[in-house]
């Protein structure tokens, strides 16, 4: 259970994301980690690299604090839009809470008390909002034809929580469906007068649809040929701790993950007199050693801390090179 899913045909020690670029079957790539570790930079860079080897790539940010616009200095919205300077790379920003909000508001508008109750019931299932927002994304994305979609996830750590619940969800929803099958006609009879549009049957159809969609989503995300997760972290204790937890969680959800990007590594120049830098470098080295020991079956990519913000297409392009060609660290003392 604790063993991680590893493709047998890749070199486990390769410190790059080349394997992901080479795995043409991959359709969904998630980039996740705690806030402030460089998720957006990594996902943008990965998307840029992918765009070189795939027909078309879509970059989606599900983070409510949308950073894609800042990273590319270009405004993105709910619709996919081409990124300036790239032929086959588009981006969009969606609010994961938006779609569920609309649904709930829609339900409140109707005058059906039973419908409201059912909706409340269904939406109180943990993770259902994320599942629905992903379902929404998938629906949108299916109609467009992108070969690969990169998700820049929100730093909540529960982005994929719903994948843990498919069994529970399925059970709950099928129970509700069953109940309505038995009592639906009766309730319809009682509520018929004031029920108006959106009676029990319609409600149930919606629920059934939801169930199917969630099942479909989790099936796709659990397929290691279609989906992988890239963990981004910095060589510090808390970040490492969260990464370990996330990897264990992903294993529980049966989501493939075999890549870690270690960001913001310090490489002080030879003869540097910066006391803080050398002290920090020592600490980072310690955690880096631990990472290499613990995740020996992962592609561990090391990226240095730059002296400038990585913003704009050109800088991102340059940074993205480090995902495929290991960074050549300067000589140290």
């Amino acid at each position: 259970m604790s063993s991680v899913f590893v493709d047998s045909d890749l070199d486990p020690l390769e410190p790059t994301l080349q394997s992901i670029l080479d795995q043409k079957s991959l359709r969904w790539i998630f980039v996740g980690g705690k806030g402030g570790v460089g998720k957006t930079t990594t996902s943008c860079s990965l998307a840029i690299q992918l765009a070189k080897v795939r027909d078309s790539v879509l970059l989606i940010s599900t983070d409510p604090a949308h950073n894609l616009s800042d990273a590319f200095n270009q405004k993105f919205g709910k619709e996919a839009r081409k990124i300036e300077g790239f032929e086959n790379l588009s981006a969009m920003e969606i609010d994961p809470n938006g779609s569920i909000q609309e649904l709930i508001e829609g339900a409140e508008g109707s005058q059906n008390p039973l419908g409201n109750m059912m909706q409340d019931l269904a939406f109180s299932i943990p993770g259902v909002d994320e599942a629905m927002s992903f379902a929404e994304v998938l629906k949108q994305v299916k109609s467009l034809s992108y070969s690969t979609i990169v998700f820049d996830t929100a730093p909540t750590g529960h982005t994929l929580r719903f994948l843990q619940f498919p069994a529970v969800l399925e059970k709950a929803l099928s129970k509700i469906s069953q109940l309505s099958g038995k009592f639906g006609p009766m309730l319809n009879g009682i509520l018929g007068a004031q029920g108006g549009p959106g009676g029990v049957d319609e409600m149930m159809q919606k629920m059934e649809g939801m169930r199917e969609v969630i099942g479909e989503v989790s099936k796709q995300f659990k397929d290691p040929d279609l989906t992988t997760f890239i963990c981004v972290c910095i060589p510090e204790f808390l970040s490492l701790y969260e990464t370990e937890r996330m990897i264990q969680e992903l294993n529980n959800y049966q989501i493939d993950t075999h890549s870690i990007v270690v960001n913001q590594l310090l490489f002080p120049q030879k003869g540097s007199t910066c006391e803080q830098c050398t002290a920090r470098r020592r600490m980072q080295k310690k955690y880096l050693e631990q990472i290499e020991e613990l995740y020996e079956d992962f592609n561990v990519v090391k990226c240095p801390l730059l002296v400038e913000e990585v913003r704009g297409s050109d800088k991102l392009r340059k940074f993205s090179e480090m995902l495929v060609t290991p960074y050549d660290a300067p000589a140290e003392d």
Binding site: L240, E244, E289, Q290, I291, L294
Partner: peptide, 13 residues
Amino acid sequence: SQDEFAKWAKIRR
């Protein structure tokens, strides 16, 4: 967990 994270994490697993 701070000094021997790898060992700690393995025990935890």
